[in-house]
Design a binder for these strands. Structure first.
Length: 392
DNA sequence: ATGTGC
């Protein structure tokens, strides 16, 4: 089948270039990355989501359809996704619940933690036999969040999901904790950024990693459920936004783009603003995908520099919606500040305006767990908030 | 987003 080259980039956003206006802007760097990807051998169609932003070599917030499979387009965190679990708790006082959150930086050890009830989430074998890091949330933009259903836009749809205004949910955003990185590295060491000569072999390992990511989100939810005192349950939604799937005889790569073909997706806001549960109905123009979150507006370095000038640690740990952010790492707190992200409302408006999704309900944060660690080799606490590099 | 190196 002959395939076109140098295809156009469809960016379903109100604004196609970096703008000074506070709407969902698209950085020119990210757009340039889309055009680079569009020029790859075999590329058929590149769709940028409203949360598009620059990544390492490939854009984040993009769905890329190609006749050839390019592992680097999915990146190292294969299997990363967002799941939403029902929470049956009577009262939800953020301070009390934050204090009861389990340590999600510490892996569940099959031997030492053999008696932990959260293991019930594992039915069958652990994919790839990979028990390292099981039950940990990771870093970066990953989080585990107890939230309350806020606005309900589609009551019928929400009820079918078992959700009504005021209900509590647990939102889990986590990936494959190093396992996907191994799979990408194995390819990259042999073929660099080139396509997979044996797509089936890559896909076999990739699919295991995707299953591992989903299992780990269930484990995280189970750990939190037992610690907070409610029964673990199956997720209401669980969509992976870093993966490749076979479709129409080609390979659809999603990098920070959620499957949008008739599925329900949680589009993550920030640690301090609501997230949106949407019914996605994206067609071929958007490569059957929708945004996965608010999308970074600033690089981590910029967010750190500007955040330190603009925010105090206290105001980032107690947010405008009244939620608490459990984050021992001050640097991460600044990097992940709500002001480092686009406004989620604009991303959702863009999805709606382009007919890609219908908002069902919002989830409003109560407690967001990021990490208890103070961060790498950095010093745990410095008066001025500046980071030392390494210990004395 | 990582594990790893300064």
């Amino acid at each position: 089948m002959p395939l076109p080259r140098g295809v156009p980039v469809a960016v379903p956003c109100r604004h196609r270039h970096r703008l000074a206006s506070p709407t969902s802007w698209i950085e020119s760097d990210a757009l340039a990355q889309c055009h680079q990807v569009a020029a790859l051998d075999g590329m058929i169609h590149v769709a940028g989501m409203p949360d598009l932003h620059p990544g390492k070599g490939a854009p984040i917030g993009a769905a890329m359809m190609s006749a050839l499979l390019y592992p680097f387009l999915v990146g190292s965190d294969i299997g990363c996704g967002i799941a939403v679990f029902p929470v049956r708790l009577r009262r939800a006082v953020p301070e009390r619940l934050a204090a009861r959150f389990p340590d999600l930086d510490r892996a569940l050890d099959p031997e030492r933690d053999a008696a932990d009830p959260a293991w019930a989430a594992v039915t069958g074998d652990v994919p790839a036999g990979h028990t390292d890091g099981l039950g940990t949330v990771g870093r970066g933009n990953h989080f585990v969040e107890l939230a309350r259903i806020g606005a309900v836009f589609e009551p019928g749809h929400a009820s079918r999901l078992g959700l009504d205004a005021g209900n509590l949910v647990l939102v889990v955003h986590s990936g494959s904790r190093g396992l996907g990185e191994r799979v990408l590295r194995a390819h990259t060491e042999a073929y660099g950024a080139g396509p997979a000569p044996d797509p089936a072999a890559y896909l076999a390992r990739h699919d295991e990693v995707v299953r591992w990511g989903s299992l780990n989100r269930r484990l995280l939810a189970a750990r939190v459920a037992y610690a907070l005192g409610f029964e673990p349950a199956e997720p209401i939604v669980d969509q992976c936004h870093n993966l490749v799937e076979t479709r129409d005889g080609g390979y659809l790569h999603r990098k920070g783009a959620a499957p949008g073909d008739g599925r329900d997706v949680l589009v993550a806001g920030t640690r301090g603003t609501p997230s949106y549960l949407v019914a996605a109905h994206a067609g071929p123009d958007a490569n059957h995908s929708v945004a996965h979150g608010a999308g970074r507006k600033m690089s981590r370095a910029d967010a750190l520099r500007r955040g330190r000038a603009k925010h105090t640690v206290d105001e980032l740990r107690r947010t405008p919606v009244g939620s608490l952010v459990v984050c021992g790492d001050r640097q991460l707190l600044f990097e992940e500040a709500p002001s480092a992200y686009k406004r989620i409302e604009h991303v959702i408006t863009d999805l709606v305006d382009h007919g890609l999704a219908t908002p069902v309900a919002t989830t409003v944060p109560l407690v967001t767990y990021k990490t208890l660690d103070a961060g790498g080799s950095r010093r745990p606490d410095r008066r001025d908030g500046r980071r030392g590099r390494g210990r004395p």
